[in-house]
Design a protein around this nucleic acid. Structure first.
Length: 446
RNA sequence: UCCACAGUAGCUCAACGGCAGAGCAACCGGCUGUUAACCGGUGGGUUCCAGGUUCGAAUCCUGGCUGUGGAGCCA
């Protein structure tokens, strides 16, 4: 009796009769000869139906198959270098029998080109396409690699709430919802809760969606994104940078190791990933501003010159991030940003309170900021004063202030945007392809 | 929120003041090695919406809607 197999394992079954259950990815009809590409989620295999070798009814059924029809095929696995569309390539199945579950109706996503809006409207179907399949498989490995690395180093995953009573950072970017007649907000970060958890468990992280109601319409923004946020007691900014570079180098290495096939499907330049090794460069904000001024001075294009204008004290825009990152072949840390442009809980630099112990990591190739973090203020009086300065509702932060009353310690943490990191690793043109169902300014369907 | 561009067949686009078209998809037929197969045939339109200019508007004008790219802001 033939065995049901996963296409990904097909190499183990050459010469054997097997059963594959899945969907028609593509089909070519040559008259007495048909090529049917069948995918099962793990891969794609070309099934060959030759009329004289088959029961007439089976051949007839095969000739009526449409794109995405569901079916169960039985046949003999063969090696054939002409099976270029198979994933893994080079294997095909000589069709013997066929059970059609459904002949699918006219499928919207044809093998021809489509526009972004159309594909996003059909995202629930687009996921079946080879390129999207490859990207989301890499996403799963990336997420797994990041959490594995932290787990292996004693970081405890402690989940933080998504429904929260107050802002994590600033009030302007919150999704407000009705909570039995009171206001609640979707979490924009798990960070404040991480600080409480860190005091209980030492080294913690949270990995969950974060929500930003920002009216941003760029290739790097999502309203809902997956946020990995480690936080550790007694960790310094310098130790955190080492952690980040090792974490990312490991994750990129895992992707390279497991996904040669997928990276080839998305045509990623592997040399760009192979160079991602610790250590990454570290430059101060002061240095970064000087570098940007120098880059701007050397630029002939007046438009670019204007975009690159910068004064000490301003935050970087994406043209700045891109220009800085272009100077390096791997991500680059920028540390000690002005306190005024960073969150209220960031620790001032000793003797230089106008800058803080913060660090952002900028990805190469113009992919921008993929992590942001800092040492947190641990002095009770200072954090108290900061909460007053920014004028947020003090009662909502009573529990947070408690953390500084009962055994406060120096600590640090950062947040990593999974989709931005994946967009960079995969070399994608837009973050919307890095998440199964992107939530964007103009899109919440499907 | 600002700037730029776009919206025509299921999809990708052409026609740019004078009969609304092509390729793909669908359907019918042909073909034994296809790789976005190929060849022949058939069907398919509220030209985003509302107003205006004109003998005549997909085309020009005004307003709106939707989307795309970029900026700001951020991971």
């Amino acid at each position: 009796m033939a065995q049901v197999i996963s296409i990904s394992q097909i190499a183990d079954y050459v010469g054997q009769e097997v059963i594959v259950r899945g969907w028609v990815y593509d089909r070519t009809d040559k008259g007495k000869l048909q090529f049917i590409q069948v995918r099962d989620g793990s891969g794609i295999v070309q099934c060959v139906a030759y009329k004289p070798d088959l029961d007439e009814a089976v051949f007839e059924q095969a000739s009526k198959l449409t794109q995405e029809s569901s079916l169960i095929v039985t046949g003999i696995v063969k090696v054939n270098e002409k099976a270029k569309k198979s994933v893994p390539a080079g294997f095909e199945i000589g069709l013997q029998n066929l059970e059609v579950i459904q002949v699918a109706g006219e499928y919207p996503i044809t093998p021809k080109e489509h526009g972004t809006e159309f594909l996003m409207d059909n995202r629930h179907l687009w996921l079946r396409s080879l390129r999207q399949w490859a990207i989301l498989r890499i996403r799963a490995t990336l997420a797994r690699a990041l959490t594995d690395w932290l787990d292996d180093r004693g970081y405890l995953r402690v989940d933080t709430p998504i429904l929260t009573p107050a802002a994590g950072e600033e009030t302007t970017t919150l999704f407000e919802i009705d909570y039995f007649g009171e206001s609640a907000y979707l979490a924009q970060t798990g960070q404040l809760y991480n600080e409480a958890n860190m005091m209980a468990f030492g080294k913690v992280y949270t990995f969950s969606p974060s929500f930003r109601a920002e009216k941003s319409k760029t290739r790097r923004h999502l309203m809902e994104f997956w946020h990995l946020e480690p936080e550790a007691a007694f960790m310094s900014l310098e130790e955190m940078m080492e952690l980040e570079e090792q974490l990312l180098a490991y994750a990129v290495g895992r992707v390279l190791e497991k996904h040669q096939y997928e990276l080839a499907i998305i045509e990623r330049d592997l040399s760009k990933l192979e160079s991602i090794k610790a250590p990454f460069a570290r430059i101060s904000y002061d240095d970064a501003v000087e570098r940007l001024k120098a880059i701007a001075a050397q630029t002939d294009d007046p438009e670019q010159k204007k975009l690159l204008e910068i004064e000490w004290g301003s935050d970087f825009g994406s043209p700045h991030e891109t220009a800085l990152a272009e100077q390096f072949d791997r991500p680059v840390f920028v540390y000690h940003y002005p306190s005024a442009i960073k969150a209220f809980y960031m620790q001032p630099v000793a003797g230089r309170p106008e800058v803080c112990r913060s660090v952002d990591l900028l990805a190469p190739e113009g992919y921008g900021e993929i992590t942001g973090g800092s040492e947190r203020i641990h002095d009770p009086a200072l954090i108290d004063a900061r909460i007053d300065t920014i004028g947020i509702a003090r009662e909502a932060y009573a529990w947070y202030l408690d953390l500084r009353k009962y055994g406060t310690v120096p600590h640090a943490g950062f947040g990593l945007g999974l989709e931005r990191t994946l967009t960079w690793i995969c070399g994608l043109p837009h973050v919307r392809e890095a998440i199964p169902y992107a939530r964007m300014l103009n899109r919440k369907y499907p």
